[in-house]
Amino acid sequence: MLGSGILKGLLVTARNFVGSFHDRERLPTVQYPEERAPVGEAFRTFPFLVSDCPADADASARLAGLRGVACQICERNCPPRCIHIEKSKDKKPDAAGKPQLYPAVFEIDISVCMGCQICVEVCPFDSIKMDKVFEIAVPRRSPELLLDRDRLSKPNAYYRRIRPSEAAAVDAARAAEQAAAKARADAAAKAAAARQAAAATPPAA
């Protein structure tokens, strides 16, 4: 019958109209500033630097705990060249106690960064990871969007909070690596001690 399709269409919209007032399921809108949709675990925005320091550490402690050794691999691999690193003149011990260089200047221009995550992929020290902060609107581009060491460094606890499973895997790998290094050092020390002892007491010829 001519017109039945029209009535069917009207019925659909009428059902929406009535339903949207009492059926919360029908309204998928999330009213952003007050409500927010959860972000996924793999959601990423811009890089930050992981620091081995307590969760509530101040700026100097965060800088001291930086994992980065100023190797500049990320700087060289960054497609839009938004990372700027200057090496330190002196060395200081890293988490394993080995003396290492550290970045005296580490800047990322996040107005240039395209969030490709290549810096994270190439980093051999698990030092740079992707952040989830997305409310970064500022009135000026510079210096607000040129992040320095202070603003880039965040404690490992923060990393564990935003990416629990990935951070747990990184922590486990690092712990195993450090344990292996320690075991190697112990073995080396033991061998050296044995050699020393052998040298001290020459074999009876």
Binding site: T13, N16, F17, S20, L27, T29
Partner: peptide, 10 residues
């Protein structure tokens, strides 16, 4: 507002 409701918006 009504158009929104007809289309399940607010």
């Amino acid at each position: 507002k009504f158009l929104g409701r007809f289309q399940n918006r607010i």
